[in-house]
Amino acid sequence: MAQTVSNPKYREIKDGFYWTQECLPLGTLSELDRFDMSKWIGADEEVHGCQNAYLLDGEQSLLFDTLTQPNGDQVVDLLDDLLDGDDLDYLVISHPEANHAGNTFTILEAYPEATLLVPGEAAGHGTGHGTEHELYHIATDTPEDVSELANEIRYIGDGDTVDLGGYTVEFHRPVVADHSFTLWMTEHTTNTLFTVDWMGFLHQSSNCVSYVHELDREVTVEQVFRFHALAFPWLRFSDVAAIERGVADVRERFDPDIVAPAHGMVTTENPGQYMDLFTEAAAYLSEEGEHENMQSKLEYILRPPTEA
């Protein structure tokens, strides 16, 4: 089966708050038979992964993430339509990974007045190597790296806000993340938490761009498990109690009404229910890193070529 990234679809969550999504067809259950997905996917249905980006259009506009390079032209066309001739004021990249930021320079070229907002420092205990911005060509002090672009680049960090007029966003050090230069975002008016790589899940081809409560079947822990096994390999070696504390921290600090992930469906009703699903999935994932499981797996996959 040919696998092609779908063109972006979109829907309006609130007035001027848009969710855009491109889907990655991953095949049918029979093609993915190494996974036990029978609990949530039919025999002839196609499994999708997805990438999301979000546009907030108040008095000023802000795009959070870019979708991916195969859709570069389509993303610019969609922005042109949604902005209805207005400029894009801010482009935010949650982290400089291709599936989140791959169209950064395409969008900046299309909107030369837009300001690029990028994470200023690492999300972990360190400050982040100073080289990181240079290596990703997003350093404010090395304009020669982006000499063709007129755009301003600005570093943002935990607690920084941008008032768009009608919408106000705030940036946060992420609780659950993979790449060191990652920022979460909240939008105050709608109490939305943008969780980037966290809280995603694979979906059925019948359920693209659907709110979680609109899906034609319940989200299962299997879906959440499969996504997070792909997105966060370190969960195999995680401390379940620490994960539970992290999720509790998210609930206490953010208590969102809407959760808008980069790789799943938007949750507008009872987001806590899906945080519980993640916690359950993380517990299963941590079992994969147990000695017995890892030993048999490593002995098999690292077998000499002569035994293949």
Binding site: A122, F237, G289
Partner: peptide
């Protein structure tokens, strides 16, 4: 590692070291 990995607080280092 403190710069590179934002998830060290969640790691079970004994399990990872064993692997």
């Amino acid at each position: 590692y403190m710069d590179k990995l934002p998830f060290v607080d969640f790691l079970d280092r004994e399990k990872l070291g064993d692997a």
